[in-house]
Design a protein around this nucleic acid. Structure first.
Lengths: 122, 122
DNA sequence: ACTACAGTTGAACAATAATTCAACTGTTTG
DNA sequence: CAAACAGTTGAATTATTGTTCAACTGTAGT
């Protein structure tokens, strides 16, 4: 006879082995929405093109042409990625004549990259 | 007459606007390989299922069944993600009888997640 | 007003990745 | 040794994402 306690609580294809652990851990888990947001945040940093752009902008404000030249990529490809970076508030831009200059908008960018770098370089 | 300086240095569909900036920034950029590795590292954290697993394991060692129950996902799906996490050395496992217990293997996991969380929660 | 250039945008295409499904390994128990 | 269960694996499917391409906007110069 099966335990009735968690009948419909956790649906999956297995018998719960350690209910106490599951309940205890479950209580201290971050909200689902929070973890989705966190995943999305990391997703922005998970593309080497975007990382290159961020590393470049950490040094100096640059226009799209400059970035394209530096990375050896089309303006279109760069612009698409800049759009992503701007939508996530990591960079900001200003127009000066024909050019649009991008720069870092969030102080966490450097920390997050350095932190990840530390993890990679060992 | 075009400048001869950077003739074949940067190929892209635009005229280089600020050569000095590009050269200066270019000198201080991390290696391409390094940035690829960094992107791959962030990629692991960019999925909410994997984040959930890591958050759970940060609290306590758990077997696959426990994790499946906690997340409401199939053992197969969880096992696939655990494989990714193990290949990137973020978790380790040990067998005890029929069960396989997973736990955090890298001290950076907590730092990286907390760091990202700080960025998300504001 | 016309031309040239910086940049943006949306659709199409190609590549990557997460989940499902079914078959499999390994361990315990009767 | 046979049955039952924990977990793994590979192939197939589905979803997501990065880049290209072509057309477009906006600004400067003539």
């Amino acid at each position: 006879m099966a335990s009735k306690k968690n009948e419909d609580m956790y649906r999956c294809d297995c018998n719960v082995i350690h209910e106490e652990v599951i309940e205890k851990v479950g209580e201290h888990m971050p909200e689902d929405d929070t973890l989705m947001d966190l995943a999305d945040a990391f997703k922005v940093f998970s593309d080497s093109t975007r990382l290159k752009i961020l590393c470049a902008l950490l040094q100096e404000e640059m226009c799209v042409c400059d970035i394209s030249s530096l990375l050896g990529m089309s303006k279109s490809a760069v612009s698409h990625q800049l759009r992503t970076l701007k939508q996530t508030n990591l960079v900001k831009n200003r127009r000066s004549g024909k050019e649009v200059y991008y720069s870092i908008a969030d102080k966490h960018v450097e920390t997050i990259i350095n932190n990840g770098m530390e993890h990679v370089l060992e």
